[in-house]
Design a protein around this nucleic acid. Structure first.
Lengths: 229, 229
DNA sequence: CGCAACAGGATTGTATCCAATTGACGGGCA
DNA sequence: TGCCCGTCAATTGGATACAATCCTGTTGCG
């Protein structure tokens, strides 16, 4: 490894997280410690620390003496995550309607312009930007704790969408982002919340009832629940 | 160690967390890996894993090549934590007003009775129960993600209170807990939220303007700001 | 007398090593 | 033929060893 600016654990942690949300590592995929370590040129110790963090963030799950896997949230879990996301983002809006920092709108509008620029190309960049808009909103509250929770939740939502949605293309409608900005600027919290609810509801809804026809787990989930322990 | 039911890391993690919120380990105190490991009869590896988690939970901070310390949240940080707590607990109330599980009120009232039982004795039990009431509220939403965030935040608040409040005695007024239950039962979300805001606001407010007279950092913060680099 | 460079000790960051648990495969038995 | 149990490989859980970094006390020089 080249840069020592941060600790190796941080680097591996970031890399793995990025790989997961970019779907390079698909949900359910195994993450053997020595394989990962070998790949990045670090020892198992480092990988383990990174995996501990990722587990805490809900992006991987570990089973005792079995190893780590990319998280594969159930539909229930997904719904819980989305519920918390709605709560947190509504809280963000309420706070922003009361205290938006001076440069806030400029930064938001710049971000939206950036989103529009890559609107056509449905690449990972579009997905990343869509998530970052929501994180930016949280950042503007000036509350790092809130920002952190929102970031975590948004990441988990990305993972969930990659599992259950058919396509990411219309993941976040850019014009809705603009509408939210406008509502906040007008200090109209209820309207901003309404738009946000619709915005997230559409995303969650699209994911929820799109059944993965080729998922073994889904097909078997109605049979022999007790055998699956 | 005797029991292998869970992993050693979990055990150390729990023990340290308990020690921190019970103020056995005071904020700012160093946590050398060797010392802790020696004390619990485990290796540094384990302690390290536990510390990583605790850092993620905001209960300890680690500085590169300096080691881990029990977190010593600044006033700003404290305010941020309390803001998020208000947000989360209000969300909990909104959810509970819509869907309270059947046995919910029984469990809540049983808890309040327990609190009243130890009301007089101002021990660690009282502190723990006060926190657990709020966690119980979160649990009743049936949303594990939300529950986890609330637990984390409540723990951090305990740490903050131990830093900034003069006394824990009237930490959580038990009758306010009862009022909150009543308001939720009536389905009156605004009132429940109002009480909760008052409840938490009182706690935060009490903490905010109580200056810690023995804090070196605080005393020196007004002198020679430029020398402290 | 004060400041800066240096050496020593202590502590963390990382790698390697051993042990324990798990899942799988294959042979034996009903 | 089908189920059960023993052995084995694979992988993680945990401990120790080595290297790098930082703090601190001391010493030398201006």
């Amino acid at each position: 490894m080249s840069e020592n600016k941060t600790t190796l654990t941080d680097a591996v942690h970031d890399l793995l997280r990025k790989a997961i949300i970019e779907q390079a590592l698909k949900p359910g995929m195994r993450l053997p410690e020595d394989t990962v370590g070998e790949q990045f040129g670090v020892s198992r110790t480092i990988v383990r620390h990174a995996l501990v963090r990722l587990e805490h963030e809900g992006l991987v799950v570990t089973r005792r003496n079995r190893g780590a896997f990319v998280a594969e949230p159930s539909r229930d879990e997904a719904q819980h995550v989305f519920e918390v996301r709605r709560c947190l983002e509504n809280d963000v809006i309420r706070i922003l309607c009361e205290r938006m920092p001076p440069s806030g709108y400029d930064r938001l509008e710049a971000h939206v312009r950036q989103e529009e620029a890559v609107k056509g190309k449905d690449g990972p960049v579009s997905i990343r930007l869509a998530g970052e808009f929501h994180v930016l909103l949280a950042e503007l509250t000036g509350n790092p704790v809130l920002t952190r929770y929102v970031s975590e939740i948004v990441l988990r939502c990305s993972l969930i969408m990659s599992l259950y949605a058919r396509s990411h293309s219309s993941d976040c409608a850019v014009d809705e982002h603009s509408q939210i900005i406008d509502a906040i600027r007008a200090g109209d919290a209820p309207r901003a919340i309404e738009i946000m609810e619709h915005h997230l509801g559409a995303v969650a809804g699209r994911a929820e009832f799109s059944a993965p026809p080729d998922s073994i787990q889904f097909i078997l989930s109605h049979y022999g629940k007790e055998l699956a322990q």
